[in-house]
């Protein structure tokens, strides 16, 4: 059976940041924080840098190669037509299409990677810890290790309350 998480509800992100610092100094692992907006202090303290931009670079590289190859194949190999005496391989004129397709495919690729990583999709049910966490409340989630003692749990709860948590509870 999964051990219940310790949940602390805060009114203010400044209190959350202070609580994170204290808990981190005591080597207590914070599983997640749900926040109504991107508080950069919380993200800096808890968040790992996202690797989505690397995925975007790969999508961009793919777009450049794929678009160039496609135009080359259609205009030079498959059905070459002379437009106004210009050579079939008119690379400078292709730059605009390659440029636009790179933007479009990188864009689409980035969105797909984001959705795959976050597992977000249309109609997905939100697993909220607190009904106001998307409006004005901050939810701190601390996962318990299997060997955690009751005293340690009480200590963590006290720490959260001391830092201004308006509600501390156990939850799955």
């Amino acid at each position: 059976m999964k051990t219940p998480n310790i949940i602390g509800i805060f009114d203010n992100d400044d209190q959350v940041v202070e609580a994170i610092h204290t808990l981190k100094s005591k080597n207590i692992k914070i599983a997640d924080v749900h926040a109504p907006f991107a508080s950069h202090h919380i993200l800096k303290d808890l968040g790992k840098e996202s690797r989505i931009p690397y995925g975007s670079v790969l999508a961009g590289a793919f777009a450049i190669v794929a678009t160039f190859s496609f135009i080359y194949w259609t205009s030079v190999i498959n059905y070459p037509i002379v437009f106004g005496g210009k050579p079939n391989f008119s690379f400078p004129a292709w730059v605009v299409v390659i440029y636009l397709m790179t933007i479009l495919l990188t864009f689409i690729g980035t969105v797909i990677i984001f959705q795959m990583r976050t597992k977000m999709n249309f109609g997905k049910k939100a697993e909220l810890m607190h009904i106001d966490s998307t409006e004005d409340k901050f939810v701190m989630i601390i996962e318990q290790d299997a060997d955690i003692t009751e005293k340690e749990v009480q200590n963590i709860k006290k720490m959260l309350s001391d830092h201004g948590a308006i509600e501390v509870r156990m939850d799955n």
């Binding site: 997640d32 749900h34 840098e49 989505i52 984001f114 976050t118 977000m120 109609g123 998307t134």
Partner: peptide, 17 residues
């Protein structure tokens, strides 16, 4: 809203995207 809950992981990825 695609199941958005505003977790740190999602915010970090969201901001990066």
């Amino acid at each position: 809203s695609m199941g958005w809950v505003g977790s740190v992981k999602n915010w970090v990825r969201y901001e990066a995207m």
